[in-house]
Each structure stands twice: as structure tokens, then as C-alpha cells.
């Protein structure tokens, strides 16, 4: 997905994990996934560079669909569709 497409996504839940470091964002994502339905889109905000790589790995394992990452100044917005 392009940055524009990601930015125009209708997000079902957003979780701000910018105040945590590894493995905080992953924990936050796992918790938030439990609160949404299959097909819903989750947005994870993280200031930890490693999360960019971690979330896609986690998504693959959990059969969610990683949609992409948008870089903001000092943090990342990561989009995952629940499988």
C-alpha cells in the first residue's frame, strides 16, 4: 500500500505505544487485536524503530495482514488488518 492509501484507511482501533520500548508496542498490539473483529484495521503508534520490523513478523505468525508503515517525525504508524 502507498503512503496515501495508508493515510486514507478507515482505522477501527488505534493504540498509542509511543511511551513504551520493546516489547511494549508488541504487547499493546496483541492486547488491541483481542478487542477488534476479523477484517478490522489496527493502527499502532510506536517510537521504537524495531517495532517497524517486529509487527510484520508478529502479523505473519498470527495470520494477520500487515498493510504498511507511515513514518511521522519521531514515530511510526503501523497498520495491520486482523486475520
Amino acid at each position: 500500500m502507498t503512503t496515501e492509501e495508508l493515510k486514507s484507511l478507515k482505522v477501527n482501533k488505534s493504540v498509542d505505544a509511543r511511551g513504551t520500548s520493546c516489547p511494549g508496542p508488541l504487547l499493546a498490539a496483541k492486547k488491541a487485536m483481542g478487542e477488534i473483529k476479523s477484517g478490522d484495521i489496527l493502527e499502532v503508534l510506536s517510537a521504537d524503530e524495531g517495532t517497524k520490523k517486529d509487527i510484520p513478523k508478529w502479523a505473519t505468525k498470527k495470520k494477520h495482514e500487515y498493510l504498511g508503515t507511515v513514518e511521522e517525525s519521531g514515530y511510526f504508524k503501523i497498520y495491520v488488518k486482523k486475520g
Binding site: 520493546c22 516489547p23 508488541l26 504487547l27 498490539a29 496483541k30 508478529w58 505468525k61 498470527k62
Partner: peptide
Amino acid sequence: FIIAVGAAAMD
């Protein structure tokens, strides 16, 4: 502990 908690977060 970081590895353990990370793994548990990945179920």
C-alpha cells in the same frame, strides 16, 4: 525477560 515477554506477546 524481554525475550520471554516478547515471545508470550506472540502467543
